[in-house]
């Protein structure tokens, strides 16, 4: 599949009265790609989503979605994008099914799609439940179901699994990956490094409104793997970590030749360690 650029951000800045939320950020996202925007609370992730979805105007720079400048996003573009934010509302007094039915009408989607998507997010059995009585995890799944009902070309996910239990997280990750595989460009913000590592094709680390590192999760981890250490487990149950050197290479060779080696792992840093190293602060 040819990958088309669906989101383009150039030198984007956002200044509030007393605070700079975004400082000269640039990136682009192609179709069929999950782009992770990582940073602690207050780093500017939600502001970026609001600008990209036309809910807020930038102070400086340029951003476009599906070729349209974000300041000119109209109904036609909204029909092709899906948005999930941590405070996306649902109609509490309506059933799960009715909540989606409204949007099938608004987005001109066949009603048969409702059951299909409810099965995908694991809410099919609860389709008659009143939305106000759903648990936090179920609400989040309903919001996600609504956002992907029309097979959007671009999907914005603002902390989609925040506060969810691990099994729900896995279900949501599976759905996100299947959307990516079908060509949807996904812009995902999170402060969960493990989630970013598992899901994202490319990442940008954001700190104080500035992109401090960008690349694939692997590239980022390897770029910061300066110590190049290996964790080794031998048959006699001894476990230790060795730094890369001529001597280490010889030792590993010897253990392998003598069938002493049980496991060997490279100790590249986690994304969390990289973030700490780059910004001097932890992800909270």
């Amino acid at each position: 599949m040819t990958q088309l650029e669906t989101i383009s951000v150039k030198h984007l800045s956002k200044q509030f009265k007393n605070q700079t939320a975004l400082r000269d950020i640039s990136f682009s996202i192609k179709s069929g790609e999950i782009f992770g925007f990582l940073g602690p609370s207050g780093a500017g992730k939600t502001t970026t989503i609001k600008i990209l979805t036309g809910q807020m105007h930038p102070s400086d720079g340029f951003a476009s979605v599906l070729g349209v400048p974000t300041e000119k996003i109209n109904e036609h573009i909204y029909e092709q994008i899906g948005i999930v934010t941590h405070n996306s509302g649902i109609y509490d007094k309506l059933s799960v099914y009715k909540n989606l039915e409204i949007f099938t009408k608004l987005l001109n989607v066949k009603k048969s799609k409702i059951d299909e998507i409810l099965k995908q997010v694991g809410l099919f059995k609860d389709r008659k439940k009143i939305a106000g009585k759903l648990s936090q995890g179920m609400r989040q799944r309903l919001v996600l179901a609504r956002a992907v009902l029309h097979n959007p070309k671009v999907l914005f996910l603002d902390e989609p699994t925040s506060g969810l239990d691990p099994s729900t997280q896995i279900e949501i990750h599976r759905l996100i990956k299947s959307l990516r595989d079908n060509g949807t460009a996904i812009f995902l913000t999170t402060h969960n490094m493990e989630e970013a590592d598992k899901l994202c094709d490319r990442l940008a680390l954001l700190n104080d409104g500035k992109i401090v590192e960008t690349g694939t999760p692997r590239e980022i981890r390897l770029n910061h793997n300066k110590k190049k250490r290996y964790k080794i487990l031998l048959k006699d149950d001894s476990e230790f970590t060795l730094s890369q050197s001529e001597e280490t290479t010889q030792k590993i060779n010897w253990w392998m030749t003598n069938n002493e080696l049980v496991t060997i792992h490279s100790c590249e840093p986690t994304l969390e360690t990289v973030f700490l190293e780059v910004t001097g602060r932890e992800l909270i």
Binding site: T53, E75, E79, N87, S88, G89, Y91, F103, L106
Partner: peptide, 12 residues
């Protein structure tokens, strides 16, 4: 309840 914003960003 943040539903108006959802409608407005759903092409209404």
């Amino acid at each position: 309840k943040n539903t108006l914003r959802v409608l407005m960003t759903s092409s209404v």
